[in-house]
Nucleic acid binder design. Structure first.
Lengths: 193, 193, 193, 193
DNA sequence: TATGAATGAGACTTCATTCAT
DNA sequence: GATGAATGAAGTCTCATTCAT
């Protein structure tokens, strides 16, 4: 007996989300038409509406699709053992692994929250915010003297995120995972009094 | 001191660019209609087209308007005296000063290049790229051992840019200029062997 | 016998071309709005664009629709047997038959090439040009003495076309076919030394 | 003392009508914008409206400008002495002379009546109609037997007009005046029993 | 008289969405 | 579930015309 916990994620539905994700990242959500999506997915335009309420809902569901496993993982890492530095290192490694696995989805995930298209509630724990929260706690636990914790957290966030942007914009060669060590070193230096 | 060689920028033209800038940043370029712009500028929709060829051209001219003084300033700083670190500090201060002076324009400037709307040539020296280039040279002249220069440059870029994002997203309190010292400290630490 | 290789020409598409043809001839292409066409065809304005790329493309396709069978017929007549005069008579009869069958389309066909809207290549063998070419050959084969062939061809063309114009402008009563005999007589007289 | 019988026809007014005539013939009235006209006449767009009520009025006045001397001349010829054939010959010569003098204006004159833009009353004695009327009378006075007078008049009209079209469309070399003799010969033949 | 900036009605076109098949 | 023709609201842009200078 089969129990449906989540939607079946039919073949067609998959084709749509895949095509849409690619186009959304390449052209932006607003500039991507349902016709574009239908053509890329090789389905009829009307078919999109058998699987999604609207283009906007589609965009949001793609976000959730990538966001949920990510959020779960972060919680796991937060509750895992070891020192603050060790846990942070694990998160960065996981994060960079995601980037290398599916760069397109990663960009979408990190971008969607920002754009004016996002109708996410203002307090949605986006990847961005989740990371920042963890960093803020790391900084606080580190008992830094003389450094403003919130600013420091932003600095650390920049250290982690910018290399990914560098790869996306072609200024740095991928993959990103092998860079994790150097990035953690830089973070270490910043946190050193 | 700035010298205007260009058009005197008529009153109406100013109203249009001001209104458009605000809306473009708030809603995104694609989501901002010419009707929105006209209403905000309190002019007729057709009037936009007596001053700009198209909505796209308007978006691009607003970018150039902000970009040109910025680019000139960067060149000046590059050629100014002092050590690499001193020059970099001056740039960051100037950069943060711009942010505090007109946050909206700053966001537009840093965002425009990225978006799919941008029809800028791929090799346009955008603010992002100009900063990165300067950082790359700083890192190289610093003769870092053991650190990959390109990665380090991205890390420094992240350290500089992310605090601004933090303020934009309301996670950090402005203004940004007073933070420049701490940011430079963080950069110093990363560049320390 | 006409063979259709092209699209089946859906019901809606037909409604659009019919309505557009009528309006284009009555008001001119430039003065006919897509709204006019939609109203006359009793469809939504947007529907036009599911069948035609643009208003201009619609105008051109209507032209081609009428032009192609006409061109084919002319070729057939050219290759048919009999004397030059006999072949010419056949063409005129066919031509006048078309006029009587669908005067509106006939006017459109003869007008479209001239108008500034026509984006037809300058060497498109339009009805006008096809007729002229045939007449030029007729004149040459007739070995007229003392008559400049090109001028004579134009004169014959005028003899053939003007009666149609006369009917269009209400100065002559239709139908035109019964007039073919008298018109051919006039041509004969002109060609007589 | 100067008496104004007609409008002063100022320098500026002339520039406008000249520019407009050229553009109207080249692109059609509908496709010619007031901006086009102003640019070609090297004046401000608003200036057009100091001399003409509207674009439409401008188009009509240009027509009248050319039409009035033509109409007067025709009347003169009608009342001049000689046989019907002689008077007709004089008209054709005059008509072809006009063509050679100012082909652009001639085309405009002959075209304006036809186009859907023309708001001329249906019974306006246009060049076309004036010629036709004269031809009809010629035919009637000629007491043709067996030929339907209205059809014959149209045929003669075609003989006269089509060579002009031939030159306009580049199928015949100008000037037209030297062709008048041959054209009259053709007319003579058609009118011969 | 001439200017040219501004207008606003309306043109063409796009596109998310619906619905009968 | 899938299709694809049709919709209609809305978007960008044009242009004849007005009016203060």
């Amino acid at each position: 007996m089969i129990t449906h916990i989540e939607k079946p994620a039919s073949k067609t539905r998959q084709r749509i989300t895949n095509a849409a994700l690619e186009l959304f990242v390449a052209q932006g959500i607003a500039a991507t038409t349902t016709r574009d999506i239908a053509a890329a997915a090789d389905i009829a335009e009307g078919t999109i509406y058998r699987h999604f309420e609207s283009k906007e809902a589609l965009a949001q569901e793609i976000f959730m699709e990538g966001y949920m496993p990510f959020a779960k993982a972060l919680v796991t890492f937060e509750q895992s053992g070891g020192t603050v530095a060790e846990r942070l290192a694990r998160v960065v490694e996981y994060f960079y692994g995601l980037f290398d696995t599916d760069q397109t989805r990663w960009v979408y995930l990190m971008t969607y929250q920002t754009g004016p298209q996002s109708k996410l509630p203002d307090d949605t724990p986006t990847p961005h915010r989740l990371l920042l929260k963890m960093l803020t706690e790391s900084v606080k636990k580190g008992e830094m003297k003389g450094l403003e914790p919130k600013l420091t957290a932003q600095i650390l966030l920049g250290i982690i995120l910018q290399p990914a942007d560098g790869i996306v914009y072609g200024q740095l060669q991928g993959p990103l995972s092998p860079r994790a060590g150097e990035v953690m070193q830089a973070i270490g230096k910043v946190l050193t009094p």
